[in-house]
Design a protein around this nucleic acid. Structure first.
Length: 789
DNA sequence: GCTTAGGGTTTG
């Protein structure tokens, strides 16, 4: 039985007699008795292997001063835990269902000769709280859930002084928002010293100096805007103001300052007092601080935003480190972004490197080399590759560097960036390891993952796992099946319970979620608009041009200049006659064509043809005879040129290939080389012409719905997997297009009861896009496929 | 038990 909270004494169904404490004895039968008393002592919740939890308390009757009028009670099991959370000293309780034992401490504590043991189903404690407004909501919530960790002890009351009310000499407790801080650093004395400047609603800014022998006992500040609670700090006069210094019994809690973050305190203390009132204070400080523009002081920058000669804070992952010199350590780090400036390579002897000693050239371009000097060298000794770090007041240094104690190892690289953490602690200079569970690390991991996925998409041949091994994917085991039959199945290995769409809307980006939902509708509704052209270089996405636009560009390109044609010298030029029926207009047409002389000599003239002045349909026609058909136009000087890249540059069988306008500057007609496997394909042609080939991708927006909410999710990266099709085939094969249409029709029938639509079991990734100032969270369908229909 | 520092850029 739990502790039952009452706001008036109405114990339904309880007909026990309340007896005075003095009447308790081992000889009495107490099964129909209850005992009422005020809690005058409440011990800590102690965990026990036998009872799970034990808690001792003392309750006293009305005449508390008299010997034997207070009695020890021992509470075992979950009741102890409930009691710990629901009952405070001075609360009035009624205990029943107890057994009476001899108190072993009666002689010493002058309390009742018996004690009460409360355990098992019969034991009950009713607690009286004066009015409903006395009931903090979480106190009520905890009564139902009983889930708070046992370290949250019930409170002696702490008073917190506003920063405008500090009188020198006193020892006080304060709350504040951090506006400046220095990481703990070794002082000249015996301790580590850390420095804080905090403010609160009184707008006073007060400096705090903390001396503790262990860095972990200092407030765990990660960034400006964090909130601290300091217990037992001494107010000392200094200059025209006061400073706060830790005194005996000092303890500190720190919290994220973000308005929507959880209120989990950061502390190294095993036990601490943290009440609903504390939670409220933190929340109030957060919302006050949100309007104070304190974060403008915050200089967190990503490598993608690093500017030469500037100072900034970098949140990153340590990939490798190398002690270069007694006054200098090299940290090789990455933050999931690409620095727009070339990064300086720093060469050090491989045998002093801890962590990965070499990376592929591609990865090497992403890695920032950080040189850490002087006092910070000591701190790097605790760092391990894989750690997530925040480096404060890092400076981006353009140009070459010379490493201390290393001769001529450095190649001159002008204007390449390296990063220095100079000696000293000015401006909060220092390094901190961020815990894995902090939101900034979660965000960092997400960015790294997105980058990794994009990189894979662009360069599937690059597979340097070393960089990615350092961070872990979630534990992998299958999720238990559900009774509903789903039309899709997840192919991921996340061990996640499904969430509702309304829950999902409040999730943290950079995470995966499982949902069960129906397809309300989808976009685009026309299948040909589902296919997009994607440039893996500039990552742009565009529609496939419609026939009207293609015809227009072809028609504009068919104007023949007056001068004589002047094709390249590797071409053989001639004419083909096309019969008239394929196009409107009088009779047939004669087209200028150009063939590769080399291929013609090799008897391979059917493999490549350039056509001047053709229509799209003619190009398609000829693609049944020639392997590669390339529409071209004549420039005024007679030279051959490619058509505008808004139309296909190559017809190959039934396929059309497109190039990226943005990324194919300087594209021109050049002779494709049939080397190696001797096959001329779109890749070889694009390469010869200097064209960045576009990929076909499928992009759909699913409007999902469940009982709780609606939500949009994109199907992009894994659309092939989802429909079990190849995008290239989708572009050319009717049967593949039909398959996709059938699937979508099944999930979302044009008519019929929406409730009867099949359910989809989906894995969704929640993410933010780069530089999205709205901080909007997007969802993408991952690792999900359609079951056989 | 006492002291440490008292924000405000290296000079690699």
């Amino acid at each position: 039985m739990p502790v039952i909270v009452l706001t008036k004494w109405d114990m339904p169904g309880d007909h026990r007699t309340i007896i005075p404490i003095s009447e308790i004895s081992t000889g009495n039968h107490h099964s129909h008795h209850s005992v009422k008393g005020t809690v005058i002592h409440k011990g800590p919740l102690v965990s026990s292997s036998t009872y799970h939890f034990i808690l001792k308390a003392v309750i006293a009757g009305d005449n508390a001063e008299a010997e034997g009028s207070s009695i020890n009670i021992v509470i075992l099991g979950t009741l102890a835990k409930d009691f710990s959370q629901a009952v405070n000293e001075k609360d009035v309780v009624i205990a029943s269902g107890y057994t009476v034992g001899k108190s072993p401490t009666a002689r010493k504590d002058k309390r009742h000769v018996c004690n009460l043991l409360l355990s098992g189903d019969q034991a009950q404690i009713h607690v009286f709280w004066h009015s409903p407004s006395d009931l903090p909501s979480s106190r009520q919530a905890k009564m139902k859930k009983t889930s708070a960790p046992p370290t949250l002890l019930s409170t002696p009351k702490y008073k917190y002084v506003k920063l405008s009310d500090l009188n020198a000499g006193a020892v006080v407790n304060v709350y504040g928002v951090v506006v400046f801080f220095k990481q703990p650093y070794k002082s000249r004395g015996t301790d580590f010293c850390s420095s804080l400047k905090i403010t609160d609603q009184s707008e006073q800014k007060i400096t705090c100096t903390i001396f503790c022998s262990k860095p972990e006992s200092h407030p765990q500040i990660f960034q400006i805007g964090d909130i601290v609670r300091l217990h037992r700090v001494k107010i000392q006069p200094y200059k025209d103001s006061v400073t706060l210094m830790n005194s005996f019994g000092f303890s500190a809690l720190a919290f994220s300052g973000k308005v929507d973050a959880d209120t989990e305190p950061r502390t190294s203390s095993k036990t601490f007092h943290f009440t609903e009132e504390d939670r409220r204070t933190v929340t109030e400080l957060r919302s006050w601080a949100a309007d104070q523009n304190l974060m403008s002081e915050d200089l967190n920058v990503r490598l993608s935003g690093a500017q030469p000669k500037t100072y900034f804070n970098l949140t990153c992952q340590l990939l490798a480190k190398a002690p270069v010199h007694s006054t200098c350590t090299l940290l090789r780090v990455w933050d999931g972004t690409r620095c727009p400036y070339a990064l300086l390579k720093v060469t050090v002897n491989a045998n002093i490197i801890e962590g990965t000693t070499s990376f592929s050239e591609e990865r090497e371009k992403l890695i920032a080399n950080v040189l850490v000097f002087d006092n910070h060298v000591q701190c790097t000794k605790n760092l391990k590759p894989g750690d997530f770090l925040r480096i404060f007041n890092l400076r981006a240094i353009p140009g070459s560097i010379r490493l201390p104690g290393v001769r001529s190892s450095q190649v001159e690289e002008i204007n390449h960036l390296s990063f220095h953490l100079h000696g000293g602690t000015a401006y909060g200079r220092g390094i901190r390891i961020l815990p894995d569970n902090c939101t900034d690390v979660q965000e960092l991991k997400r960015i790294m993952k997105v980058f990794h996925e994009n990189m894979e998409l662009n360069q599937p041949e690059v597979n340097d796992s070393a960089m990615w091994d350092a961070w872990n994917t979630p534990p992998q085991s299958p999720v238990k099946g559900a009774s509903v039959e789903f039309s899709t199945e997840r192919t991921c290995d996340h061990e996640l319970q499904p969430v509702t769409l309304s829950e999902l809307k409040h999730c943290t980006p950079g995470s995966f979620h499982h949902v069960r939902a129906q397809l309300r509708s989808y976009e685009p509704s026309r299948l040909h608009q589902v296919l997009k052209l994607y440039c893996s270089k500039c990552q742009s996405m565009q529609d496939i041009p419609d026939n009207k636009l293609v015809s227009k560009v072809f028609s504009e390109a068919s104007t023949v200049p007056n001068g004589p044609p002047s094709p390249p010298d590797w071409c053989l030029s001639g004419q083909v006659h096309l019969p008239g029926e394929s196009e409107p207009g009088p009779g047939g047409r004669t087209l200028n064509v150009h063939l590769s002389a080399q291929l013609t000599v090799e008897g391979r003239s059917k493999e490549l043809i350039f056509l001047t002045g053709c229509t799209p349909l003619e190009a398609c026609h000829l693609a049944t005879t020639f392997t590669n058909v390339i529409p071209v136009r004549s420039l005024p000087g007679g030279q051959l040129d490619l058509l505008d890249l808004s139309v296909p540059f190559l017809f190959r069988g039934r396929k059309r290939f497109y190039g990226c306008k943005q990324c194919s500057k300087g594209a021109a007609v050049r002779e494709p080389k049939a080397d190696g496997d001797n096959i001329i394909d779109e890749k070889k042609i694009a390469e010869a012409f200097g064209i960045q080939l576009l990929k076909f991708v499928l992009l759909l927006t699913f409007h999902l719905q469940d009982a709780t909410d609606k939500l949009d999710a994109y199907l992009l990266r894994e659309s092939e997997h989802f429909f079990n099709v190849s995008t290239e085939e989708t572009a050319t094969k009717q049967e593949v297009q039909d398959r996709i249409s059938r699937t979508l029709n099944y999930y979302c029938p044009p008519e019929g009861n929406a409730d009867e639509r099949p359910w989809l079991d989906l894995c969704l990734a929640a993410y933010r896009t780069y530089m999205d100032e709205n901080k909007k969270v997007y969802f993408q369908i991952k690792s999900t496929r359609t079951r056989e229909l």
